[in-house]
Write a protein that binds this DNA or RNA. Structure first.
Ligand code: FES
Ligand code: FES
Lengths: 144, 144
DNA sequence: TATAAATAGGATATTTTTATCCGAATTAAA
DNA sequence: TTTAATTCGGATAAAAATATCCTATTTATA
């Protein structure tokens, strides 16, 4: 469904959100350990998330990654997915036609569109704060 | 969402179904042209579909690929997807945890499960005959 | 101002997916 | 029985995704 990069990106964002709510910055090493991902690869993804304004980086000593507290509840899963995997999962044809077009539909268009829209709505209606809270309360997990 | 191999596999199966309904066998060259896919790669996928009993091959001169007429309406999209991409899209965790487990859920589990189940139901309730008919009537397309 | 801790980013390596090629095996028909 | 058309399957190549490594740059603090 999502690329590995995107999975790491989502989990990393959630972990950063948890820590930012407590005023703590985190670095790639901690993040990679917490979400069980390759550190250097994760660092690349973090850079991408910084460029697309999902997270913020602070360079230099005592730096790290963080998210403005007020922004945590405003960042939707869809922004993270789009930043890393692009919008194909939302708008692309399920069978790989050049574009998903009502007037030139692939055989699964009508049925696929419903599922795709539901996925889109789900991602657009889920924000980082919701996800961070569940981790914190121990009712969901970032690894294993 | 689906791999290229899976997209080609679905489109090829639909094209074979259309032709089998008319008693015609088709070969990888015709298939690749009709679904706009690389011929040799498509041939490999056809072999996999033969091995998993989705389609039937007839070797030698005047051979080709076909599907038993009575089977066309019985082959679900889900069988094709499973044969090529496996069952991860149905049963795997959306964030890549080792397994999707109610008792050890990832942060998006509850919401993701709903979408994943809807996708599964969609694929299980769609058969090749339905898809072939729309192509034949010109209301859906296999390429461009 | 020097130092140490941190992100940025380019180069490279590995793995997986996608794609191509070619000879062997099969088979219907001439 | 020979030929031509066809699938099968192994070997290889190319491209993309995933992963690693190293150096440059930034910056807070001693
Ligand atoms: S055209 Fe294929 S999903 Fe819309
Ligand atoms: S645990 Fe991640 S989707 Fe179920």
């Amino acid at each position: 469904m999502f690329s590995k990069a995107c999975e790491y990106g989502i989990k990393a964002s959630i972990f950063i959100a948890i820590n930012s709510r407590e005023g703590k910055r985190v670095n790639p090493k901690e993040i990679a350990e917490e979400i069980d991902s390759p550190k250097a690869f994760t660092a690349k993804i973090l850079q991408a998330l910084v460029r697309s304004n999902v997270i913020k980086s602070v360079q230099g000593a005592y730096g790290g990654f963080e998210i403005d507290k007020e922004k945590i509840s405003k960042i939707k899963l869809s922004q993270i997915v789009e930043a890393i995997d692009g919008d194909n999962i939302y708008s692309g044809c399920g069978l790989g036609l050049a574009s998903c077009d009502e007037y030139h539909p692939c055989p699964v268009h009508d049925k696929f569109k419903i599922v795709r829209t539901e996925l889109k709505d789900m991602l657009e209606n889920t924000n980082l704060e919701q996800l961070a809270i569940d981790i914190k309360s121990g009712s969901s997990f970032l690894k294993i």
